[in-house]
Amino acid sequence: MDDKSLLSPFSQRYSQAKCRLQEQTLSRIESVETVLNFHTLPRVNNACLAVDRKKEVVGGGHRSIPRPFRTLLKWPTELLDVEITTRRSSHPEQVAGKIRTVALTNFDTERLQIILENGIPVVSNQVQHSIVDMRPQQKMAELCQLTGVKLITYGTVMGGLLSEKFLDTHLSIPFAGPPLNTPSLQKYKRMVDAWGGWSLFQTLLQTLKKVASKHGVSIPTVAVKYILDQTAVAGSMVVVRLGLSEHIQDTNAIFSLVLDEEDVSSILEVSRRGKDLLRVIGDCGDEYRRA
């Protein structure tokens, strides 16, 4: 499969918009002791900064932060190499304490290692990670274990594909299944196609349903718990739409669910039948960088 076929026009427009945002954001950075300089190459990643309360947000237009250590500012970056540039500010008192924490999004293993080797205290990397997409466990998890960086996952329920809604459905037959009516569903359907196709995905859903029924929970609950139990994973983001799909009960059930050895083995057996997405697509975030 052509890697570019995994990217919808929406994703391509999104990448272009992120590049424009990068130019606008980096132009606003002033009087910062340590700045990340990213060489301009056809690679797209994100960097996040957690900033203190009542401090000007570096690279942003906000002037007040309601709580310390809770606001993440992120901008897209295009990089292959990372150059750490130290600047001396004419007003050091304005710089002190401004940057609390650096977090990353969609950095692959190679570039995560580069930024760590340059002494940047990264606390987490936000990556796509699901039972279908196990790429973070193949290379990045080992680096994270060695360095203490935590993984925050997204796409863990694949925009809703990993749910009862799509169990026993035939998307190849017009109007025979739920519509893929969001960019997220369309994106993760392409991931399913790259991994092993809809038939194998149905086998995965059936396996997850058996595990879910055994524990009295839903398929999404099992899917998220399985990923939370993986090496270096500290948290998972589940997108909600207030009044439409809040997932409160499913989310609460994650914390009491314990998957036993039989559960894990049955899920792993199906997962391993799929293609190696690291070979098909590349490392974490490569599907965006190749746009």
Rank of each mutant, 00 (worst) to 15 (best):
M158A: 11
R273H: 13
Q137S: 12
E142Y: 04
P76N: 09
L257T: 05
T86S: 13
A50N: 05
L36F: 09
E30V: 12
R190N: 10
P42W: 07
T147R: 12
V240E: 08
I115W: 04
S27T: 06
P9I: 07
M191G: 03
N252F: 10
D229R: 02
K210F: 02
K189G: 03
I219S: 02
R111W: 07
L200E: 07
S172W: 11
I114L: 10
R13S: 12
D229T: 04
L257C: 04
S8Q: 09
G235S: 15
V127L: 08
T156G: 02
V95D: 15
P76S: 06
S31Q: 14
G155T: 03
L204G: 01
V127E: 04
Q94H: 10
M134A: 08
H39T: 13
S266A: 14
P121R: 07
L143E: 05
K74W: 05
R289M: 11
P68L: 07
T77M: 15
R43A: 09
I248A: 14
T207W: 00
V95K: 05
W75P: 00
V258E: 14
Q128A: 06
H247Y: 12
T101I: 10
K139H: 10
R88N: 11
S199I: 14
N37A: 10
C48M: 09
S27C: 08
K189F: 13
G160M: 11
E56L: 03
V102D: 04
T147I: 07
A232R: 00
Q16T: 11
G282H: 08
I254V: 15
T147C: 08
L228G: 02
L204H: 01
S266E: 11
D263P: 08
T169Q: 15
L205D: 01
G177C: 02
M1L: 11
V58Q: 06
L21E: 14
F107S: 05
S236W: 00
N125P: 05
K98L: 09
I84M: 12
D81K: 15
E142G: 06
V240R: 11
P178V: 05
D81I: 06
Q186P: 04
E164R: 11
K98D: 08
K98I: 07
G235F: 02
Y14P: 01
T71K: 07
E110W: 07
W195Q: 01
V132Y: 03
V217P: 01
P9Q: 08
E287A: 06
W195R: 00
D81P: 06
D81M: 07
E110H: 11
G274A: 04
Q126Y: 05
L180S: 06
V123D: 03
V264G: 02
I65C: 03
T153R: 00
T71S: 08
N252L: 15
G160H: 07
G196A: 10
M237L: 14
